[in-house]
Design a protein around this nucleic acid. Structure first.
Length: 708
DNA sequence: GATAGGGTTGTTTTT
DNA sequence: CAACCCTATC
């Protein structure tokens, strides 16, 4: 593997994995690595320097947006390494695996050498490493597959069906709700009853609760039988592992320093895990970094009160604040502060601007979604003329679907863009169609995977599928056994001859019989692509595009040695590949695209210019929060995160009229804009009237621009 | 009894 | 774009 900074993303993924594997084998080496001299004093401010010179014991760091949080963590890691701490004594927990890789990359640049062996990644990916290693201790199949949320929901549906829940006449939670309830219960350490009362009080009923619990039992059992784990299981089993004395002692011997980024977005079980590890070590070197104002994952059980609890839990904890903002012009910070002060449940803290004065944020009222899209496109072109590169511009949406019209407009104007929202590449139907074949090679007991394959086979429906899977599940056989003569022959309608569907299935998968989970996934995928080509062609409208995607997938998978490595990387890094990139026409030079993203995925990132569309009541904040103060505050934090991504220019855009399922509908200005002090933004003085009466006082976005 | 096809519905945010 | 329900067909 190459050294230096010219790694491709894929190589990092691969090396990353290797490092983790080595961690289990390597003892902390007594030979400290030779690193560059790092100029800590020159590159950090006083607040930051104080932190990295005091890394010991429990530390709580409150870091405002744009305060150089990543820089501080990076230098902290560098500090530890240069003072002789071995890489595999450090655990760095980040919010995404991408963030982990980027931080390691930055540490590498500082040290002039790649620090091999740091435990770095998300809670889920690290949990996976430990669980794979100790699957036997936990009584799990070593080749378990990790389900994504869609799969987990499908399995929950299956469990509910088996328990006979969907046939009930009374109202009952959907499989999605049922899965959510279970998920909250695990992540927040609450009973099912408590979760129901907390989030789904409509279903507060003994009978429902009883049935639900029955479905859960079935769900758990099914996962065990099929060798499946959901995201929550990863945390659950890691946590359980830490109660095993021998394993815990082994982990304690290795990990001496824990650093947790984005601590405001951890939930109860995650906090429990790191505290268990921290307490295993007499020095309890645990550093958590976060900003309660940026906690936006409550829907996943995150609780920014973890930050407050931290101080209670470690009475001797040292508390630091880093407050200088290096990102945004003071005008943008003023608006951000003016917004977040409306939140009651909040640490009071003040961001100190360091940049000279710049442009005031704009509040742009537009007539409707089309005008909004036009305005954004116009303004992007204008910014480009002013010297902005397109990739320094972002459109940040509350929900993925808010960007549809904007995308169309950018396409029409030949403005290249990339979308980081909605269904990711690996969740697309055709990609999953291919991947489920890999899943059954890895683990043939995975019913969710099989049933997706069954759907692709002509003359094979639900009933036959269930019969075939029941044979598979009883066979206790690896994949090759399934090809023994007559295995798939099931009798239908009392006839002796194998059904058409089962013969089709056998034909379909026969060419996979010689592959095993240890083979290179790309070779297998090439074969799979041949198998499903006709199905893709006949099922999907844009099959050419999809077949291209499948080729891409096979190429991408070359970076992984085994099926297992490939599959679990996909499960745990789902948003690493851009879901859609539209490049401008036939331009010879490729221009870096504008970014369209959900706000949630924009966390930790920054752009020179940021557009926030759809600032209307019932869109942002979303209609679901009605009256719920905590939910409104969460939405306001989402707004705050969006604002603080902007370095130089910020555009708040609010359409007056929106197209809903039937016709146009007036939309009120978002509470979050309404409540702002009008002094913190510049508003177009032009009054805009709804489209139907498009006469006096009404203007288009183009005219609005001229008038500015 | 089982499968295929049509038409309708409803979707925040993500590991 | 998947999950549902209904109807036509084998």
């Amino acid at each position: 593997m190459k050294n230096g900074k010219d790694h491709t993303e894929e190589e990092y993924v691969f090396e990353f994995y290797e490092d983790m594997e080595q961690n289990f084998e390597a003892e902390a080496s007594s030979m400290p690595n030779k690193y560059n001299d790092v100029k800590f004093e020159e590159n950090l401010n006083d607040e930051q320097l104080k932190i990295i010179n005091n890394i010991k014991g429990p530390m709580l760091i409150i870091a405002g947006a744009g305060s150089g949080k990543t820089r501080t963590i990076t230098y902290a890691v560098a500090k530890l390494l240069t003072s002789g701490v071995h890489p595999n004594e450090i655990m760095l927990v980040t919010f995404t695996n991408k963030a982990a890789k980027e931080m390691i990359k930055r540490v590498e640049l500082l040290l002039g050498k790649r620090p091999k062996g740091i435990w770095a990644g998300t809670f889920h990916s690290m949990a996976n490493r430990f669980i794979r290693r100790y699957s036997q201790t936990l009584g799990l199949k070593p080749n378990y597959n990790i389900m994504d949320e869609t799969d987990a929901r499908a399995l929950m549906r299956l469990a509910m069906d088996k328990v006979g829940v969907s046939e009930m006449e009374e109202r009952f939670p959907t499989s999605k709700m049922a899965k959510n309830i279970l998920s909250y219960s695990i992540n927040c350490d609450k009973t099912i009853r408590e979760v129901i009362l907390w989030k789904y009080s409509d279903f507060d009923d003994d009978k429902i609760e009883k049935k639900l619990k029955k479905a859960y039992t079935r769900y758990e059992k099914k996962k065990e039988e099929d060798g499946l784990l959901d995201f929550d299981d990863l945390l659950l089993f890691w946590n359980r592992l830490l109660d095993e004395k021998i394993v815990a002692r082994m982990i304690a011997r290795k990990i001496k320093y824990i650093l947790v980024d984005e601590y405001q977005d951890t939930n109860h079980i995650q906090a429990e895990i790191i505290h268990k590890i921290a307490r295993l070590n007499p020095e309890r070197n645990i550093m958590v970094v976060g900003d309660d104002a940026q906690s936006i994952y409550a829907f996943r059980g995150a609780n920014f009160k973890n930050i407050l609890d931290f101080e209670d839990m470690y009475k001797d904890c040292k508390k630091y604040k880093i407050t200088y903002n290096y990102r945004s012009v003071p005008e943008i910070l003023t608006l951000a502060n003016d917004s977040i002060r409306h939140n009651q449940f909040q640490h009071q803290k003040e961001m100190k601007p360091t940049r000279p004065s710049g442009a005031q944020p704009f509040l742009v009222n537009v007539a409707d979604g089309e005008e909004q899209a036009k305005f954004i496109a116009n303004q992007i072109l204008r910014l480009r003329e002013e010297g902005y590169k397109l990739n320094q511009i972002a459109i940040l949406c509350r929900a993925g679907r808010h960007s549809l019209k904007i995308e169309q407009e950018l396409q029409a104007r030949n403005i290249p863009y990339v979308v980081r929202a909605g269904v990711g590449f690996f969740e697309k139907a055709h990609i999953k169609d291919a991947l489920v074949h890999l899943r059954i090679i890895e683990n043939p007991f995975d019913e969710i995977a099989w049933s997706r394959i069954f759907k692709m086979i002509p003359d094979l429906g639900k009933t036959s599928g269930a019969k075939i899977f029941s044979k598979i599940s009883q066979s206790e056989a690896p994949l090759e056994k399934l090809f023994e003569k007559g295995f798939f022959s099931i009798t239908m309608k009392g006839e002796r001859i194998p059904s058409k569907g089962s013969r089709n299935l056998l034909n379909h998968i026969t060419s996979l019989r010689n592959f095993s989970s240890n083979d290179n996934p790309s070779e297998i995928l090439n074969e799979i692509n041949k198998l499903i080509k006709d199905y893709i062609k006949s099922t999907y409208e844009n099959s050419d595009e999809r077949l291209e995607d499948l080729k891409e997938l096979a190429i991408y998978s070359q970076n992984y040695a085994t099926v297992q490595q490939f599959l679990e990387t996909l499960s745990l890094n789902r948003n690493n590949i851009e879901s859609k990139t539209v490049l401008a026409g036939n331009k010879s030079e490729i221009e870096e695209p504008v970014v369209i993203s959900t706000i949630h995925r924009a966390k930790g990132l920054e752009w020179r210019a940021v557009f926030i569309p759809m600032l209307c009541q019932n869109f942002f904040p979303s209609s679901r929060v009605k009256g719920d103060q905590e939910a409104i505050e969460e939405e306001r934090r989402v707004f705050y995160v969006a604002i603080t991504r902007a370095k130089d220019q910020l555009y708040l855009i609010s359409p007056a009229l929106l197209q809903s399922w039937r016709g146009y509908q007036t939309a009120d200005l978002s509470l979050f804009v309404e409540e702002l002090d009008p002094k913190v933004y510049r508003k177009s003085s032009v009054k805009i009237k709804p489209k139907p009466n498009k006469e006096s006082g009404f203007c288009t976005a183009d005219e609005l621009l001229e008038g500015k």
